[in-house]
Design a protein around this nucleic acid. Structure first.
Lengths: 192, 192
DNA sequence: GGCTTGCTGTGACTTTTGTCACGAACCGAT
DNA sequence: ATCGGTTCGTGACAAAAGTCACAGCAAGCC
């Protein structure tokens, strides 16, 4: 069960985990199952865990004054899921995180974070993740302010074909910051 | 000259710097002056330094196929300036970074990064920065996909009044992802 | 089976935003 | 002081995207 995570750490840190390291990780993180539509985090509550997705799909979104959802992140297997701000500072979150499919996670409780970070491979992995995260955010932001709806969608398709297949189009539209009808029209093959 | 940086580190890490730490920092970072319109980084080149701004203002932007600039970041005193991706991996950058006012910097060359990170206060500061950065990006992204031009501008004004005053409006417009004419009309008081 | 619910597409229309063109005010450098 | 570049505003129009309403269709449930 923990193997997917160990692989992930090795891959991202470029370092190997000792038996002892693996024991520490097993001790620090607990498995958890969520059914489709169950919340991992709700607005106003504190994000107590960082989750590593073993199987399934989740989405993070905010809800504005009109009750409209705005999707910030769509995640699947081998991604971490967390509201970093809420998790790090243990402050109430502005976001919802919800299982979109039946999902299996490994949970890291906030108090265990320091324990885990003492492992060099984990520490390196978190740096690398933070790095990748930053780069992806910057790219997405660049796209969002530079491109029109058509190009943004095309870029998304190329970059995340797997996510395209596992979430409905209106969620993708929200992620891209466009109306679902607009996305529907963009996809029409004879458009020009 | 280095005091502004030392203060910054103390503030962000919650830790104090020893005399020895300060010596290491002085040894690792070199002062540099840029005149208005001088480049800190050009597209296609490798970002060799991370800069800490002592005085002045800088902007980071990409240029699209039509030659249009898209502003990703506007920075002033006590901000770090860098293309993180290019700097970390020493790969060619897709961005320009330019001094918008006469600017004084402290430069950290890439090879010195590890030296600096060995100092606990610096290490803590970089974690905290990465954290804040991530939060700010997420907020900006949320705004960009959720709000119209008017609200985005109002939020920007509230959040960065100082930056508003030091950069021309067409740069702010580009940062917000709208045309300069649109911003001009938004600002008109009798609009409704 | 029949029912509800969620997802997608589409037409008609409105609103928002972008584009192009022009001119005025300002500012720094020679 | 004046010349060239930059900034900002604005009008007229075009393009992009949003909104509202309706319909078909598939999946799941009693």
């Amino acid at each position: 069960m923990y193997e997917a995570l160990f692989d992930y750490i090795t891959r991202y840190s470029g370092q190997t985990l000792t038996e002892k390291d693996q024991e520490i990780i097993r001790g620090a993180m607990e498995p958890k199952k969520l059914r489709k539509k169950q919340y991992f985090l709700e607005e106003g509550k504190v994000c107590k865990y960082t989750g590593f997705i073993l199987k399934g799909a989740m989405r993070q979104f905010s809800v504005d004054d009109n009750g409209t959802e705005h999707i910030l992140q769509l995640t699947i297997e081998n991604w971490w899921v967390v509201d970093r701000q809420s998790f790090m500072n243990q402050t109430p979150s502005r976001y919802f995180i919800e299982a979109w499919e039946d999902t299996e996670l490994l949970l890291l409780p906030r108090p265990q974070l320091d324990t885990i970070l003492a492992i060099p491979a984990i520490n390196a992995m978190f740096w690398q993740m933070s790095e990748n995260n930053h780069i992806a955010s910057q790219k997405r932001l660049d796209d969002t302010i530079s491109l029109n709806a058509v190009s943004r969608f095309e870029n998304f398709q190329k970059q995340y074909p797997e996510i395209m297949q596992r979430f409905p189009l209106h969620q993708i539209a929200s992620y891209l910051g466009i109306a679902r009808e607009t996305l529907s029209r963009i996809r029409r093959p004879d458009a020009h």
